[in-house]
Structures are given as structure tokens and as C-alpha cells.
């Protein structure tokens, strides 16, 4: 029996115990982070970035039921926004807090620009068009040498600072990412519970019937696309600031597929599932360090297995954040 089954199937009493345990581990991990060696802080940071990306992409895939295989393009938009506005490349040195909204808006704009033509299409085509779009963005970045530095990328990005406080060490980024993930997670969770979130679910279940009850599906899908792109773009900007280097290698198709994989394995349509999926994605290479290349094979097979045997993923939608809160704080 998997952890989630235990969580959902067991009586509230024991379910609560396990919920507390998971919660306690999370808190302990957060509290311990400042004292961990840099290497582990970096691992946790990329875990947080993946969670952020997962939260973004899940809006489109999990809530709205649209397969977007070009998500990494928005991640790239954010990363290159930071790289261009805070580096010697164009000799611009904007502060981090000024770039963040710019990156967010650019991401949203890209999402809407892609979405307007594409979202009217049949659902299955969306996957292939977004995939093509992701590749277009990557090829353009790769070849627009004068702007993006081509395959070599852009190096020596500025150190970020927020209101005069330098954000440079891994632990600084840990706090920045943690706050971002928490804020994004809560907002997106509330969005899912809002009337728009219900409309997304209706579109996922039956788009024609959703139109039949008065939902302007194009607008609702655009909203999903734009929100998701914004989060991806913000994740990209933070990623660029923390690496202080960007190159097209970070934005391949495989990266997009990995984020999809993470969502499906963890629990499609559930923020808690994404955390679980990201944890697996990040912990696996640590466990299988000798067999680095086996990791993706394992993930691929795990995904096939789960889709067939347990399509809801490790933490199913029915065990969402509200349920966790109820388990933790009674009622």
C-alpha cells in the first residue's frame, strides 16, 4: 500500500498521525536547511524550482486537462529576461525586484500570444503545437547570437539583491524560493477553489458541455495558460539569478517532459502531489548516483506503470491541501 493510500484509506485518526509526520518532516527540513552543507541546499533549491514549475504547469495539465509540452519556453523567457536585464550582455543592470514583474508580464504575454491561436484547436493538437513552440523558442535562442549569446549562453549575470540585501548564497535563494513557492502554492490553490478553477475542471471533463453552461472556454483556457506561463517565467528569473548563467541547454524538450512526468507521477491536479513528484525527481539521482542515466529510464517506466495501475498518481487529487489542513487542524 502506498503512502497516499494509507493516507486516504486509513481512519481519520491514523491518517492524522501520518499527516502530522509528513508535516513535521517538512518543517524539520526547512528548519535544518540553514545548517546543511551548500551542496544539499542547492539540491533543495532545485527541488523548490521544480515544485514551482510543477505548480505552474499543473494549472494547464492537471486543472484544465490540456497537454502542454512546451512549458520550458516560458521558463526560458523568464531566465533570459533576467540574463538580458542584469548582465554585461546589453550592459543593463536592473535590480532583481524590477526584473521580476517584467519577467512575469513577458511570460504572461508569451502565454497569451501562443494561446490565442492555439487554444481554439482540438485538444490533441495542443500537445504537438506547444511542443513545436518550445522547440522554436530554443532554436531561436540558440541562433540569435548577438542577443542571447547562442549556444554559449550568457554568463556573469549580476548578483541579485532585494531591497539592499544581497541574495547570492544558496541559502539566500533557499529562503527566496521557499517564500515564492509558498505564495504561489497558496494563490494557485485558492485559484483552483475559485469559480474559475471549477470552470477549468469542467473544461477538463467535457469542453462542449462546459460551453453549454455558459463558460467562455477560450477565455478560461487563456487565463490558465497565462497564469501558468507567469509562474514558469518567475521560476526562470529566479533560476537565472541563482545560477548567474543561462544557456539553451537548460531549456530542452526533455526538461518539459520531465516536468510533465513529475506531475503525473506525483498526482495530477494536486499541489501536494507535485511536491511528492518533485521529491522523487530530485531524490532519485541522489539515491542512484552510480547509475545516473538509469534515472530517466526509471522515471519513464514508473510513469507508464502508474498511469496504468494508479492513474491518480502517488498523492491523488482527492487528497488535496484542504484535506491535509483538515487532517492537521481538526474539523
Amino acid at each position: 500500500m502506498s503512502v497516499a493510500e494509507t493516507l486516504t484509506a486509513a481512519k481519520p485518526h491514523s491518517g492524522r498521525a501520518i499527516s502530522f509526520l509528513v508535516f513535521a518532516i517538512a518543517i524539520a527540513l526547512i528548519a535544518a536547511s540553514p545548517f546543511l552543507p551548500n551542496y544539499y541546499v542547492r539540491v533543495i533549491n532545485s527541488l523548490l524550482i521544480y515544485i514551482l514549475l510543477g505548480i505552474g504547469l499543473n494549472i494547464v495539465i492537471g486543472y484544465t486537462g490540456l497537454l502542454d509540452l512546451g512549458f520550458v519556453a516560458f521558463y526560458a523567457v523568464g531566465a533570459y529576461s533576467y540574463a538580458l536585464l542584469a548582465s554585461p550582455q546589453l550592459d543593463l543592470h536592473w535590480p532583481f525586484l524590477a526584473i521580476l514583474p517584467v519577467a512575469a508580464c513577458l511570460g504572461a504575454a508569451t502565454g497569451i500570444l501562443l494561446g490565442i491561436p492555439v487554444l481554439r484547436l482540438r485538444g490533441d493538437y495542443l500537445a504537438i503545437v506547444t511542443l513545436g513552440f518550445g522547440e522554436i523558442i530554443r532554436i531561436i535562442i540558440n541562433n540569435l547570437d548577438w542577443l542571447t549569446g547562442g549556444p554559449k549562453g550568457i554568463a556573469r549575470l549580476d548578483k541579485a539583491s532585494i531591497l539592499g540585501i544581497q541574495v547570492a548564497r544558496p541559502i539566500d535563494f533557499f529562503w527566496l524560493l521557499l517564500i515564492t513557492v509558498l505564495v504561489a502554492g497558496v494563490l494557485v490553490w485558492r485559484l483552483e477553489r475559485s469559480i474559475l478553477g471549477k470552470a477549468w475542471a469542467a473544461i477538463r471533463e467535457d469542453q462542449d458541455a462546459a460551453r453549454g453552461i455558459g463558460i467562455n472556454t477560450t477565455n478560461a483556457k487563456l487565463a490558465a495558460f497565462a497564469t501558468s506561463a507567469t509562474i514558469g517565467s518567475i521560476a526562470g528569473a529566479i533560476f537565472a539569478a541563482s545560477q548567474r548563467f543561462v544557456s539553451p541547454e537548460s531549456f530542452t524538450l526533455q526538461e518539459s517532459v520531465l516536468i510533465v512526468l513529475m506531475i503525473v507521477i506525483g498526482g495530477i491536479g494536486n499541489i501536494l502531489g507535485i511536491v511528492a513528484g518533485a521529491a522523487i525527481l530530485m531524490l532519485l539521482p541522489e539515491v542512484l548516483r552510480e547509475f545516473a542515466e538509469w534515472r530517466i529510464l526509471f522515471l519513464g517506466l514508473l510513469m507508464i506503470f502508474l498511469i496504468i495501475v494508479r492513474p491518480a498518481g502517488i498523492v491523488p487529487r482527492s487528497f488535496g491541501p484542504d484535506k491535509l489542513i483538515r487532517r492537521l487542524f481538526g474539523k
Binding site: 474559475l196 469542467a202 471533463e205 453552461i213 455558459g214
Partner: peptide, 17 residues
């Protein structure tokens, strides 16, 4: 044609979109 994986209540709620 219902929204199968939404609860009965949600099926109605979403009509207020």
C-alpha cells in the same frame, strides 16, 4: 453529459461561472 470527476455539488456550482 456530466462533469464526471467533479462532485455533484461542483457540477452545479460551476454553472455560476
Amino acid at each position: 453529459r456530466l462533469f464526471d470527476q467533479m462532485t455533484v455539488l461542483e457540477n452545479l456550482e460551476v454553472c455560476f461561472y
